[in-house]
Structure formats: C-alpha cells, structure tokens
Design a protein around this nucleic acid. Structure first.
Length: 649
RNA sequence: GCCGGAGUAGCUCAGCUGGUAGAGCACUCGCCUUGUAAGCGAAAGGUCGUCGGUUCGAGUCCGACCUCCGGCUCCA
C-alpha cells in the first residue's frame, strides 16, 4: 500500500504498516525521533496502523504543539502513576494536557492534604518512571470488563466516565469497547494518543495544586487538581519558567502598588481606592471616552446608584440577579444598589414622549455599579465589586438595529486601536436563567450573528453565556499570564423595553416598542486599566502617564531655574514634577526610571544659562538638549497624538 | 461560594524544635551640592491579620473569623 507524505511524495509500505514502520521507511533517525503520527489530520499513536492511501505526518520533538501535547499527556499519566504509588487509596479522575502544561484531578483519601510542599516527593517518584522509560501500551477492553475492572479497583470516577461514554454515544455507533493505556504499574482509561514511552518526557515540573469540581459541577465532589508542565528539552522548560517570571513583573497588582496607582483595603474587598496617579490615568481614559462618545452622537447622563426594589422587580434583576446585589432597608423601603445602569436609563427615556424622529437616542454614562461577586473570584482590578462602566444604552427602532450594532463595533475597534489591542470576539447566546420568549431570543441572536457575519469578523460561539435579558457580542483580552477577560460588550435587548413599557410614536402615529442596545466598550475602567497596565508593563504612553516629566536640578542653585521650567511646561498643559531633593543626579534618575516616568529633564549651569533642558527618555536615555519651548512642543504633540511614543512593548 | 496555601515595619523578606521581634530599602533629621540607574551618617518605626484557646510563657501550637494568592464554580 502507499501513504502520502507532507511533501506530496507517495511512499510504498507493507500492508498493515504502523506509523513507526512509515517513519522507519523514511529513515532510521526519524523512527528514533518519532513521538506519534498525524493520519489524515488526526493525531495518533506511533504504533497505530496506517490505512492505505492515508496522508501521514511523523510527529517529532520539532513538531511544535503536537509534540508538546503528546509529552504533556504522557506526563499527566506519569503524575498519576506517582500519586497512586505514594498515596494508596487515592481515586483518579481525569488528566488532560492543557495550554501550558497538564493536570490530573485526584480524590485523596480522607485526611490527606496535598500542597506544593509535596511536589518534590511526587516529582522524584515521577522521575523514576521517566527514567525507567516505560512503554505506553494501548489495549481495548469490552465496556463490561472495563467497568468491572475499575469497580474492583475502587475507581468510581472511571466507572462513571465509562458509563457516560456508553450513555452519550451516538445510537448509530454504540460504544462497545474502551481503550486503556498502561505504562509500568499504571493503567488508565484513556482515548490516547501517547508518545511511545515515558522517557520522551525530557523536562517537567509540577507547578500548582488547586481544587476543582468533579466534571466542573459545583454541586459535586471537590477534587484536588495538580498542575504541571512538560517540555521536550530542559532549555524549553527553563525558558517557560523565565517567561512566567517576567509575566509576574508586569502583574497589574504589583505595578499598581509600585507606581502608586491604586490600593485595596480589607474593609472594602473588591473595591479599588484610586490614588492620585491612578485617578489621573483614569481621568485621561475617561476624557478619551467622552471625546469619542460626543463624536458619535451620544449624550452623557448620570443616574442614581440606589433604587427601590420595585425597579429591580420590573427589570427582572430581582428574579434573576438578586444574589449578586446589595440591598438595604430605609424607612421600611427595600432599596438596592444598581448592578447595571440599564433600568435607570429607561427612566430617562420614558420621562418624555418619544417620536421616531428622535431615534436613535444614545445615552452614555460612566456609571458606577456594585455587584456582589463571590469572594473567591475577586482579582485585583480585573474582578471587582465596585465597577465603573463606560456604559451606554441606545434606544432605536427594530430597523435601526443592524446599523447601530455595526456602529458599536466600529466604536469599540476604534478605542482598542488606540492601544494596539486586538480583542477576541465572542457571541454569547441565551443562558439558562433568562427572561423573555424563545421567539425574542431567536430574533436577537440572529441579529447579532448577522452583524458579525456581515463584516466577516471571526468569532467564537459562547453558548449559554448571554445576559439574562438578551444575547451579546463580547470583546475579550488576555492578561499577562494568559487569562482571558471580557472587556467590551454589545447586547441586544427586546425585553427591558417591554418590561418598562417603552414606546415611541411612529410615522403612522401609532405607538411602537423601541429596541435597547446595551454597550460598554472598555467594559469597565477598572478591568480595562488592569489590562492596560499589564499591556504597557506600567510604561504608559505620554498621554496616559500620570506624571509626564520630572525636572532634575543638579544642585540646589538650579532649583529656581527648575521651577521656572516646570511652570512653563505646566502652562503648556503638561504634568510635571520637580525633584529638588538634595540627592545626586544619579539617584534622581534611578528613581525616575523606576517610576517609569516618560521624560527626565536634567538642568544645571549649562541649561540655566542657555534656557534649555537636557532631555532623557525613559529606557531610551539621553535624546537631546533643547530649548524648553522645543521640548514643550515635542511633548504636547506626543500627547495630542495619543500615540504610545514607542513605549509599548 | 468551594479546595489548597499565605498574612511579621510603608515595601521586600529573616525569625530552628514555644523563652516577650530583626535586615535591606523607603520615611525623618544631619552632613555632602552633586552632570545621566543607589553619596555618607544618625534616629525613628511593629497590638507579629482579628478574636479565642493550650501553656509558667505564643510571632511560633490549636480553633474560629477576616483578607490576600493559585485554581474551580460563577462572571448577569
């Protein structure tokens, strides 16, 4: 028979040849290096038979993700092997490879707690199995036998997995057998594939331990998940750990403290305190948002943060969202802090009679909302309870929906472009806890999908993750260590206009129901700034930098001149400090560099005589000695352009 | 909310098996008057997250709670 190789050549191999046979036919060296194969696009064991005419690709350490996937999958099994030996009575569940490594979930016997202090011991045991270079052997077992086997071993989770496999199978292709993989003393229920043997894991490390619900279900058993990572060389592992270390340096929580941007207090968990520097940055961002809103036909409003529960009953929040809201009793009335601005905006809408000629009406609000996020989910600025949204609600006719949604997307991309962000798009559809009719959801979901498709934008379908009142298009960004966060959102809502009885008078002089579009582009200033800090690693573009320049007099006698320079620059609209402490220039520069201040202006006898400043740019070093006015022009132009001035990394 | 870990000076961290707290940097003061990433010296600074327990004695051991960190669930 023949197989197709990636370079389009055909290779003659004996009937029934395995992947290894194919590799051998190409070369002995390749056969030794082979970890697995891709057959017609599917990753398989090296030992798997190859069908006649198949396209076969040999996976080696140089195959990138395929190779990592195999080795990490292997490492997960080796982890389970070690844990089974060290902790008799442990029950195993699942252990897949993931983005940066792998994990395995265990149910340890009562009283056994595993922490990272145990990693050394577990890793040592894992090393033994890697060194032994145990072969991964695949076998197939009839379902009944497999269940019996795992039941006998007390591996209840495996039994449940097999039973579910059988139950959820396509009736046309019932599951009759399951595959097992054995390495050394350990056998696991596993679909595969695996590399030929444990010795192919050239470098691994356990990284963390965490709780994880069995099958991701919060009502079920909490298992212990051990995370690790594995690579094809020690250098790759070292490089990976190095990257993690670098990522930690740009963690917004660390930079927020170091750069004096914000702080937290135990007395108000999940609520940032903006310090002057952080507030300055937030103000600049708000100014950008205001400018852009004004350009696009939005009118800014501000609404109260606390309302009678009646409002929340009418909006649906009371029924669906109460758990996440803060309530208080005042003179016998139940009042709730707003978790969203939408009901408030409907009040303004319905305060007047509206004509079709008025639509679309676009209200924007830097709205302050409070949500009682579960304590375990709070995370710096990225998950807070005190949220300032760059919110807006558009009231329009059904016909106007497509254009308004497009405008929102355009607006979002325009904002993200300022920072060089490339968000990932998601379309989130009807959730389980929802309001409104199925027909309404069909209509709304179709409208959003069409908006994305019309522009050919790639997006992910996130089923069941919509808002309770309507589907949404979300813009996601990742933080410094690769966690994804939702920022912007555009939500289509037919429900709330109905609930609040919103109307407009049409050209036919009859009353009609408007449609509401909820949209936040940055999402919240808190989360957006968190991402921004990590994106810039705290080295903000000039327009955002809380302090844009610091004047550094060389000796006390230059303080007067330094003050005059600062005054001139402030008059030009720049945010300038003078460091007139009796410290050395070296020290002042070092500290300014650590504060990541964009410009340092050194002034001494020479500069005072000539009316100049010696300009040093953060990271770049000395760039010029120029008249104060020239520097002012340089800096104000940079600010006006809202460019990153080359500081983004 | 759930599982695990952690909480010592403003920050980063020491403090062995219980014997009433220590360093560097920062802050304050003094000297130095400085030319592109740390000048020198002195003083000061802590209810060891909170509350309770064990003990002659608790930063250290035990319990509860709070907050933070890593995940899980959740993220309207």
């Amino acid at each position: 028979m023949t197989v197709q190789l990636p370079d389009e050549t055909a290779l003659e191999v004996p009937d029934g040849a395995s992947g290894l046979d194919v590799a051998r036919a190409i070369g002995e060296g390749l056969a030794r290096a082979a970890l697995g194969i891709r057959v017609d696009g599917e990753l398989r064991d090296l030992a798997a038979p190859v069908p006649d005419g198949a396209r076969v690709e040999i996976v080696t350490a140089r195959s990138g993700d395929d190779a990592l996937w195999l080795v990490r999958h292997d490492a997960a099994h080796v982890l389970a092997t070690a844990v089974m030996e060290l902790y008799p009575g442990v029950k195993i569940s699942i252990g897949p490879p993931v983005d940066d490594g792998f994990y395995y979930d265990f149910d340890f016997p009562d009283g056994v707690k595993v922490s990272d202090a145990d990693f050394e011991r577990i890793e040592a045991k894992m090393r033994e199995h890697v060194k032994a270079d145990e072969t991964f052997e695949r076998s197939e077992l009839p379902v009944a036998e497999a269940i019996e086997r795992f039941r006998a071993e007390g591996q209840d989770y495996k039994v449940e997995l097999i039973e579910d496999l059988v139950r959820n199978a396509d009736p046309a292709h019932p599951v009759e057998t399951v595959s097992l993989y054995r390495n050394g003393p350990f056998t696991d229920l596993c679909r595969g594939p695996h590399a030929p043997s444990t010795g192919r894991i050239k470098a691994f490390k356990l990284t963390s331990v965490a709780g994880a619900y069995w099958r991701g279900d919060a009502s079920r058993q909490m298992l212990t998940r051990i995370y690790g990572t594995a690579f094809l060389s020690k250098d790759d592992l070292a490089a990976h750990l190095e990257r993690l270390e670098e990522a930690r340096k740009r963690d917004h929580r660390k930079l927020g403290r170091e750069l004096d941007l914000f702080m937290f207090s135990e007395l108000s968990p999940g609520s940032p305190f903006w310090k002057p520097n952080g507030q300055q940055l937030k103000n600049e961002l708000t100014a950008l948002w205001r400018d852009e809103n004004a350009d696009r036909g939005y009118r800014e409003v501000q609404t109260p943060i606390i309302y009678d529960a009646d409002l929340w009953k009418q909006s649906g929040h009371w029924h669906v969202y109460r758990e996440n809201m803060y309530f208080t009793e005042v003179e016998g009335r139940t009042m709730g802090l707003k978790p969203m601005n939408c009901p408030a905006h409907t009040q303004i809408y319905s305060s007047e009679r509206r004509s079709y000629r008025d639509l679309p009406i676009r209200y924007s609000e830097a709205g302050l909302v409070h949500r009682h996020e579960p304590s375990g989910t709070l995370h710096g600025l990225l998950r807070v309870r005190h949220i300032t949204q760059d919110d807006a609600h558009i009231f329009c006719t059904e016909e106007q929906v497509p254009e308004e949604v497009q405008r929102c997307l355009d607006f979002g991309f325009a904002i993200y472009d300022v920072f060089g962000f490339e968000p990932r798009l998601e379309l989130s559809t009807r959730p389980e806890k929802r309001v409104g009719s199925e027909e309404m959801w069909d209509r709304a979901e179709a409208a959003l999908a069409k908006a994305l498709d019309d522009r050919g934008l790639p997006y992910e379908l996130n089923e069941g993750d919509g808002a309770f009142y309507g589907p949404k298009i979300d813009l996601h960004m990742t933080d410094s260590i690769g966690r994804s966060w939702q920022l912007g959102t555009v939500q289509l809502d037919y429900y709330m206009p109905e609930q609040f009885g919103l109307t407009y008078t049409g050209a036919d002089n009859a009353e009609h129901r408007p449609v509401m579009i909820h949209r936040a582009l940055m999402g919240s200033f808190e989360r957006f700034i968190g991402i921004l800090i990590e994106h810039y690693a705290g080295e903000f573009p000039l327009w955002l930098a809380p302090v844009q320049a610091v004047v550094l007099p060389i000796a006390d006698r230059h303080n007067g001149y330094a003050d005059r320079v600062a005054a001139e620059l402030r008059a030009a609209g720049l945010r300038v400090e003078v460091d007139d402490r009796g410290e050395s220039v070296k020290r002042k520069i070092r500290e300014a560099e650590l504060r990541k201040l964009p410009y340092m202006l050194v002034v001494g006898d020479q500069e005072a005589d000539d009316g100049t400043v010696s300009v040093r740019r953060h990271r770049a070093g000395d760039i010029a000695t120029e008249p104060v006015a020239t520097f002012a022009e340089r800096a104000t132009a940079e600010v006006a352009a809202r460019t990153d001035g080359g500081s983004a990394r």
